[in-house]
Design a protein around this nucleic acid. Structure first.
Length: 219
DNA sequence: ACATTAAGTGATT
DNA sequence: AATCACTTAATGT
């Protein structure tokens, strides 16, 4: 979808209704930059400085962390419309380099907020403060789920958790991904994923197509 | 038409 | 559950 700067107020109403302060909305409309990305673009990478806090209004983003060992990537979580990247708050307030990489999974549009406002708005606008707090809380919970899912013994349940996380970030039943991609996210072999997906299809949980997985029954 | 990439399958460890 | 070897199917050029 095509957005322009004038749409920001209505976008805020639609996806970020929690940000209720009138003044905040006005500031966002003037100071926020709409940015669009193709699928597969890396918005932030490891070690880069973060100058922006993104409010995601459309699309889906995968957040990963680099493994200390052998450059492997560890999947942290997915972000979708209405989300923001909690890590970017921490990074910009502590002036640290990014410990994460964010990559778009689909065409994605964000409102980019320059970091210098992020801090001052905390005291200025109650709704901003609680938004930041809430998104921290949400993210923390998701991370706990990820950790739980790692401790799942079988790949079976981990895959379900993955599909669920990914489709809820998009608010869509259709996941555009290859088996290979999923396998890499989960540190599993492609064949294993293919076989499990096939099994899920036979159970009616899911419907498979090339580059595409439809989640039928809620996971 | 040909090459490339995604996905399905069986066997082996 | 990983790896290998191979097939089949879909897509891109």
């Amino acid at each position: 979808m095509k957005y322009s700067q004038e749409d920001i107020p209505s976008i805020l109403r639609q996806h970020f209704s929690q940000l209720a302060d009138k003044g905040l909305q006005e500031e966002l409309a003037t100071v926020g930059q709409l940015m669009s990305f193709e699928a597969g673009e890396i918005i932030m990478d490891y070690d880069s400085y973060i100058r922006l806090v993104p409010l995601i209004i459309e699309g889906s983003i995968k957040v990963t962390r680099e493994d200390d060992r052998d450059g492997r990537e560890v999947l942290l979580y997915f972000l979708g419309a209405g989300d923001t990247c909690s890590m970017s708050f921490t990074c910009c307030m502590t002036d640290k380099r990014s410990a994460i990489r964010t990559e778009t999974l689909e065409p994605t549009t964000i409102i980019a907020v320059p970091v210098r406002y992020v801090d001052s708005w905390m005291t200025k606008y109650q709704s901003w403060k609680s938004f930041v707090m809430r998104s921290y809380d949400q993210r923390m919970n998701e991370l706990i789920e990820v950790i739980d899912s790692i401790s799942f013994t079988d790949l079976d349940q981990r895959l379900l958790a993955y599909l669920e996380a990914r489709s809820s970030s998009t608010k869509s039943k259709v996941i555009r991904a290859t088996h290979r991609e999923i396998a890499m996210d989960m540190n599993a072999s492609r064949e294993a994923i293919s076989r499990l997906l096939k099994k899920l299809e036979q159970l009616g949980t899911v419907e498979l197509g090339r580059n595409e997985i439809r989640v039928l029954s809620p996971v």
